[in-house]
Design a protein around this nucleic acid. Structure first.
Lengths: 157, 157
DNA sequence: CGCTTGCCTGGAGTGCACTCCAACTCTCTA
DNA sequence: TAGAGAGTTGGAGTGCACTCCAGGCAAGCG
């Protein structure tokens, strides 16, 4: 039995944090409760493509339609997208968010499971913060080394 | 001109943090300075596949070979992999790490640029930590809501 | 009436970071 | 000397999260 070709852990590739995202948040256009897809895209910092895709994969509650079949989003939808945005920011995989959306659809009986999900995720986020802090130390160390080297070079020593 | 289909920001998809990774770190097998690929894989928590791939894309300094052409890694290579692991943990894109590796190969003249690279990256990491902290608040809030709901339910009120 | 603009759909394409495969060689132990 | 188990290669495949495209419909305006 060889150990070589087994990756020690299943190395998940996950999306990270869109640093720019938050800056693009606009105030909600006055409470008409019938927002078009482009208004929502602007508000949530997502493309219209992505909003439709979220719906396809079950990450949105059912979105209202106008009499001609165009999407009309409500305040509740915007709230939902705010939450999804936060979870996304933490690097939660889309599949997990879809799972959560399913639980919400299933109603009050899934409250305990939803709480568990968030508890587990919170631990994850905390660990990740610690991890990042650890790498900051390495970065500090490296930067100091380079700063020293630069100083020594400019002194012409 | 439509604004709808333009994603407000280029939404980079980046790998995140392998939480399990660090736990798999083994002490370096006694300083023989001629480690095989499977030893290094074990040590670094990467698969042998990935080590070869790192080399192909220029993320490794040139790795020594045995007389039959098998890779033999040195302590320096392990140090390099430690650094790469840390950078990876911060979500630095592989392309950026390759860029850094190139600068190192080019020698002392690139010290200033390397320092810049790390400075910029450190800012990035700091911002990301803040971001995560922000999402922790949302998680706390959600968890409290669910805990309340559960308490109320169990009281049968 | 035609034009522009915004929206619709299913499905194909993209970029990243691996991950694996086939076909082979080399080394070591029984 | 045979076979297991380690290593080698280039290139193809995978999974995720989008991202885009073609082709079409509906409303508003000059």
């Amino acid at each position: 039995m060889t150990v070589t070709e087994t990756a020690p852990a299943p190395v998940p590739v996950r999306p990270c944090f869109e640093l720019e995202r938050q800056r693009h948040r606009r105030p909600r256009p006055g409470g008409r409760d019938r927002y078009t897809i482009s208004e929502v895209a602007e508000y949530a910092g997502l493309s219209a493509h992505t909003l439709r895709w979220y719906e396809r994969i079950g990450l949105m509650p059912h979105v209202d339609r106008s009499h001609t079949g165009q999407r009309r989003y409500t305040e509740r939808d915007l709230d939902w997208l705010d939450l999804v945005g936060k979870l996304r920011l933490t690097g939660m995989p889309v599949a997990d968010m879809v799972r959560y959306a399913e639980l919400v659809r299933q109603g009050a009986s899934t409250v305990a499971e939803r709480e568990q999900l968030f508890l587990a995720h919170r631990e994850d986020v905390r660990r990740r913060i610690e991890e990042l802090r650890g790498t900051l130390d390495v970065l500090d160390y490296k930067i100091e080394i380079y700063a020293d080297a630069r100083r020594r070079a400019s002194e012409g020593a």
